[in-house]
Simulated assay, not measured.
Amino acid sequence: MRFHGKSIIVTGAGSGIGRATALAFAAEGGQVIAADKSEAVHETAALAGGGAIAVQMDAGSEADVERVVALACDRFGGLDVFFANAGIAGGIDSIFDQTAELWAEVLRVNLIGPFLAIKHAAPRIVERGGGAIVCTASVAGLRSGAGGAAYSASKAGVINLVQTAAQQLSGSNVRVNAVCPGLIETGMTQRAFDYAREKGVEDKIGRLNPLRRAGVPDEIARVVAFLASSEASYVNGQAWVVDGGLSTSHPVTRQEFGKTAV
């Protein structure tokens, strides 16, 4: 019961990593606000039993982030943990086929969202004597070869953001870290997994990492729970990679200029 009586916000909690982590927090006694744009967040709260409240919100909207932080403080007397997990994929097209509008939206959700979480959550966490903020980055943010251009750039930004925030929160007892998932079966990747199953090649999913398999949301949730807990009391400003070893190499099919990758 590492989170007994702790006030916790999880964005992107409607499915995948966000749902798994919200349930993990609630199972360990956390008072959880499960937030997501999707109505599926209500199902997450129901699965968590009496330990969660569902809120539909846009993680890239400052007004919505302020509202959900205020709700946590009103309902639970303050805030201890914020897991800024909400994100969108943005496609895998070549940079030269993507639009500025697409990039703006990916950055708004994937990078500005965590910035807003830190901006509005950290002062409230300080009021409780300290706590943790965890942001979802990605192995795609470490180097090329694991995601589309807009998505990868946004996640690289998240990694630097947590480093910068950790420094600017010096002396506050608020730790800020990122988790960098590899290939995980979530709503964002579901189409690829479904396609592989349809074609009978499910065994090829995740074959490029040393564990030769994809991950599941609960494997990320366990790491997030650790980073958010007092067990990680000396972990700050770090990007924890959970990818089966994929980022030790990042093997990739090259996409040549003017050609479509095979």
Rank of each mutant, 00 (worst) to 15 (best):
H4N: 15
K6P: 02
S7A: 11
I9N: 04
A13S: 01
G14A: 01
T21M: 00
L23A: 06
A24V: 05
A27N: 08
G29R: 03
E39D: 15
V41S: 03
A46I: 07
G51A: 09
G51Q: 10
I53M: 04
A54S: 01
D58A: 04
D58I: 06
G60M: 06
A63S: 12
F76V: 03
G77Q: 04
G78H: 03
G78C: 02
D80A: 05
D80L: 06
S94R: 13
E101M: 12
A104Q: 15
E105V: 15
P114I: 00
A117D: 01
E127M: 00
G129I: 06
G129T: 08
G130A: 01
V134C: 01
T136K: 09
S138T: 09
A149M: 14
A150T: 14
A153P: 11
S154G: 14
V158Q: 05
V158K: 07
N160G: 15
N160T: 13
V162R: 03
T164Y: 00
T164P: 07
A165S: 08
A166N: 03
S170Q: 10
S170Y: 13
S170H: 09
G171N: 07
V176I: 04
C180R: 11
I184T: 10
T186V: 04
M188T: 10
Q190V: 13
Q190E: 13
R191P: 01
Y195F: 14
Y195N: 14
E198N: 15
E198S: 15
D203G: 12
K204P: 04
R207A: 15
L211E: 11
R212A: 14
R212L: 12
A214P: 15
V223K: 08
V224P: 04
F226L: 13
F226G: 09
E231R: 13
S233M: 00
N236C: 02
A239F: 00
V242I: 11
G245S: 04
L246C: 08
S247K: 12
T248N: 11
H250V: 11
K259T: 11
V262F: 11
